[in-house]
Every structure is written in structure tokens, then in C-alpha cells.
């Protein structure tokens, strides 16, 4: 395997791992539930994409044919992560979960809570 190819794959894998780690770090660090949701949706999705593209390149190289099935997981995640986060946020609003004290525009959220 040539060095440049190994470098690309390594960078993709490392970047993916770093973003997944960042997503989990956000889960630990953020002050309230609504801010906490941001980290796993965005960072983890990008991290998975990096990891899966790296895996795709590496396994294609190893087997000699273009193996595209990792792309299936990537697209699936891209479609489902926003849906599950939206459902979670809706559920949290429904449960009238507390938010951070200095959140702006709380009246918008309250109006939506009363709508349900």
C-alpha cells in the first residue's frame, strides 16, 4: 500500500474518531439538555462519515473491488439522526424539561409547550 493512500485513510479515521470523541465530550460538558443535544447530532454524524469513508477506502483497497456498503450506514445515519433528535427534543418539551437560565426566547418554547 503506497504511503499517500495510508496517510489519507489514517487522517480520515483519526478525524472520524476525534469528532466522535468531541460529540461525547459535548454530551458531558454542556449545561442543559437542549444544548447537550447539539453535540451528538452534528459531531457524531460527521465523525461516522469520516470513519466510514476511511473504512470504505481501506476495504476497497484490500479486496481489490470498490466496496460501497459502508456508504449505506453513512446515508442511513444522515437520514435518521436528525429525526431521532427532533423526536427527543419534542419529548423533552412535552415533559417541560428545564433549560439553562440565560436561554433567550423562552416564550417561544413555552408557546409550543402549551400547543401540545
Amino acid at each position: 500500500m503506497p504511503f499517500w493512500f495510508e496517510l489519507i485513510v489514517s487522517l480520515l479515521l483519526l478525524g472520524g474518531g476525534a469528532f466522535i470523541l468531541l460529540g461525547s465530550l459535548g454530551l458531558v460538558r454542556m449545561p442543559d439538555f437542549y444544548t447537550r443535544m447539539h453535540a451528538p447530532t452534528k459531531a457524531t454524524t460527521l465523525g461516522m462519515w469520516g470513519l466510514l469513508v476511511g473504512a470504505l477506502l481501506l476495504s476497497s483497497w484490500n479486496s481489490g473491488v470498490l466496496s460501497m456498503n459502508q456508504l449505506l450506514i453513512a446515508v442511513f445515519l444522515l437520514l435518521t439522526t436528525p429525526v431521532s433528535t427532533h423526536m427527543l427534543a419534542k419529548g423533552a418539551l412535552h415533559h417541560r424539561l428545564e433549560w439553562d437560565k440565560n436561554t433567550q426566547g423562552q416564550e417561544h418554547a413555552k408557546r409550543f409547550m402549551d400547543d401540545q
Binding site: 461525547s24 439538555f33 445515519l77 427527543l88 419529548g91 415533559h95
Partner: peptide
Amino acid sequence: GLPDRVLALDTLYIN
């Protein structure tokens, strides 16, 4: 609280 735990589990399965 339930939403927080579900969020943690959600991230856990992706990881």
C-alpha cells in the same frame, strides 16, 4: 430524567 438518558443511549449505540 428520561430524555437525557435516551440521548446518552442514542450516542452510545452510534459509537
